[in-house]
Structures are given as structure tokens and as C-alpha cells.
Design a protein around this nucleic acid. Structure first.
Lengths: 211, 211
DNA sequence: AAAATAGTGTCTGTTAGACATTATTAG
DNA sequence: CTAATAATGTCTAACAGACACTATTTT
């Protein structure tokens, strides 16, 4: 039998707030790193969790009181030195939510992090990179919006995630080609001017190029 | 303290043989699944392994007597039912080698697998998908060739991995744009006709779109 | 009508694929 | 010379970015 390994999950919960990607961080209530900022995470519970994704959902439910519309596995971070308690492996997950989910969540800009516990700064960096890459060929950013949205809102989100201006015409052409949106018949969002058609995501809108 | 979790690594070791992706499989010498075919893998050794990638390299060294020129983490597969010994997590890795590494390795077509132990069929499928996706925008297939190769050889490998014919002119244009090859001055591979310039991979030739 | 935003159309420079041509070796 | 493969050049159809234009609402 091999020596004991600590098995945890961590979640990089991201949203778009003030035009930038922001990550949910919590003050650790106990050692190690008591009082420091860290990702929501915890031990895998072999008795309760069907798999590591289920453990990630449980952590978010217990610690953040939410169930994100999008969650995927990012990868595993492991080694002897990342946790003072011993050799550990953290299966890191990436989750996306709208910024209004719970008012009392503490959000921090993913690109200007404070000092974090463990190797959590690396996990956030990896997650932000993944979101940006995947956004260029998928519907991922739509999960940063409510279930229904206008094309203009979606374009704003995309350009904020990608950090570049997008051309309206070619953006819409691309959306039409990729074909992961469906029009909601008769539903419009009336601004102060001409109301805009509302859309929602079709069934499987995020293909995985990785697994 | 949480209940015990079994922590292992598995490696999907792939090569290109007979014009198709093939995976290295071994007969399991002991229970569970004694005698059945499985991926090379094993427990993580907290005492020896710096991280899970190191564990994967160790497994390949011990069980296959090789060190692959390419290895990356694919993802973690977990749950209560995938291993009869209990709740387990396997951090799956993907490795590429030339087909001639060791003669006594048993290769099986990745798309026409025999019955495999555990959930290893899923891991092989995930790895094959990843290789094919990543090949469309990276130098990955070059690791299926020796260190030096001609552009024609590389094109053959790419078209076999991607499963489609490739146009010579645009293939070479793409290689020039992506800029991950370097010409080896004065080195040629003389076929029966005009000899071809030899190339090798530049420094970092595989960018990761995922992590 | 003016203002503002939604949505569509058109033009053009770039590029990927198809194909042709030239280059260099062996026999 | 011919055969065979390497390497480069050219032509064209498709596409993405830039921009203009039309459409629909509020005031």
C-alpha cells in the first residue's frame, strides 16, 4: 500500500464584473494558511461524491450556496510541497456564473490577484487562460450571462473576455456559422430604443477540444 | 480525515504504426482484472514522485523501459465504481513515441480496441480525440517521428493522424506560418531520387490551448 | 423629426485549397 | 533521356474585417 496522498478539489469560480474576469476567493477559516485568501475547495468525500466533479459541485453548494451553469475539469495539480500537510493532489475545476448570483461573494480581478494560499495563484492563471482560449471558438462566454440575452450583450461579453474589440457584422456571422444559439420567438429586450431579439444557448453549446 | 481514496496514474502511450494511431497495452499481472489488457499505470508514490507527471514517467520507465519525448496530462478520471478496490482517481497522461522504441511493446489500434480493464477504453478514446484535435493547430504529430524528418514525412504523419489528405503547398505554408520547425543546415535525407531537406522541432513546439 | 440602438448588406484584401511548374537526384 | 520525388509558384473561390446602410423604437 502506497503512502497517504491528500486528495482535494478546488474551484476557480469566475464571473465578469466591471468589464474584467473576476474570481471568487474566501478567507480560509483554519490552518493551513488560516486567514489567507484561497479558492473554495475541500477534501474529496469518497462516501458522498460520485466523482470529482460532484465533489466540486458539493463544495460550491456548501461554501458558496450556488450551482453554476457551467463547470469543467481544468486539470490536476500535485506534489509534495504545495500543501504543508503532505503530498497532495488537487483536481482543479473551472466554473462560470453571472455576477449577481450571491451578493456577498468576494470577487477579485483574475489578472491582479492578492496573495493566495497554496499554489492557487497558478490555478487561477490556468483557468483564466483556458477561458480566454476556449472563448475564441466556443459559446463559453454565454455562461457569464443570464439564460437569455441579446446579441449585443453577448458581443460585449466576448470582447471583454477576449480583451479586444469585435466587429458586429463578422461576430454575428460567426455566431450563425457556429450555430449554438436559438432565437426565442417573440421575446425581446426593450432598451430605450429599438428592442433586441432575445436568444438562448442550444443544447450542447460548448464542445471540448481537450478531452 | 476523509475516507481513503486510491490515487493512480495511467498513461495512454500512442504511436503511429500501419498508418493508424496505436496504443500500448499490457496484460495485468495481478488482480483486479488479472490477465486482462490495460494501460500502463500504477499508484502514485508520495515518497518518490515529485508530482503526477513524474509518476507517469516512472511508470513508463519501469514498465515500458522508455522515456517519451512528449507527455502531457490528459485529465483525471474518478469515482466509486471504476476500480473494484474502492473509490479511485486516475490522473491520465498522454505520451507519444516513435513506433520503433521497443520491439516487444504490444500495440493495438486506438480505434478498434479489445476489451480493456477498468474504464481504460474511455481514457484511450479521450487521448485519441485530444491528439487529433491538437494536431490541427500544433506540432504534436512531429513527436511521432524521429528527431529529424523531412517535410514529406511530416505531411504523411499529419494526414494519417487527421485522417484526411493534405495539400502539399498549403501544408508547407502553414508550417512556415506556425514557425515551429528549423532547417538543419546541410542535412538531407536521400531517397532514391532528389534528397529532401531535414528539419527538427524548434524549442517550444507544442503550445497548450487548454491549461 | 432626431437620437439611439438593432440588424443587414456590400466591398475588398487576405488566405486556403487546387493545380501547375520547376528543381534535383538516380539510373 | 526518363522516372521519381522535392520544392515553389500561380490562380481562384471563399472568407473575415471594415464600413455603410436600413430598420425600429423612444422622445
Amino acid at each position: 500500500m502506497p503512502a497517504q496522498v491528500i486528495v482535494t478539489v478546488d474551484v476557480v469560480l469566475l464571473t465578469l464584473k466591471d468589464e474584467r474576469l473576476q474570481v471568487a476567493l474566501m478567507k480560509r477559516p483554519q490552518d493551513p494558511f488560516k486567514g489567507e485568501l484561497a479558492l473554495p475547495g475541500g477534501y474529496v468525500h469518497a462516501e458522498d461524491d460520485a466523482d470529482v466533479a460532484a465533489a466540486a459541485y458539493r463544495v460550491l453548494r456548501d461554501k458558496m450556496k450556488l450551482r453554476p451553469p457551467y463547470l469543467e475539469q481544468l486539470g490536476s495539480f500535485s506534489g509534495a510541497r504545495r500543501d504543508p500537510r503532505g503530498w497532495s493532489i488537487s483536481v482543479c475545476h473551472l466554473a462560470l456564473v453571472t455576477p449577481d448570483v450571491i451578493a456577498d461573494t468576494h470577487w477579485f480581478p483574475a489578472d491582479k490577484l492578492p496573495r493566495l494560499a497554496f499554489d492557487h495563484a497558478s490555478l487561477v492563471a490556468a483557468a483564466a487562460t483556458r477561458v480566454r482560449n476556449k472563448s475564441s471558438y466556443s459559446a463559453l462566454p454565454a455562461y457569464l450571462l443570464p439564460e437569455t440575452f441579446t446579441l449585443s450583450e453577448l458581443q460585449t461579453i466576448y470582447s471583454q473576455v477576449l480583451g479586444e474589440a469585435l466587429e458586429k457584422s463578422s461576430f454575428r456571422r460567426k455566431l450563425r456559422d457556429l450555430d449554438f444559439l436559438e432565437e426565442i420567438p417573440g421575446a425581446f429586450k426593450g432598451g430605450k430604443q429599438r428592442p433586441a431579439q432575445l436568444y438562448r444557448l442550444k443544447g450542447m453549446a460548448v464542445f471540448d477540444r481537450t478531452i
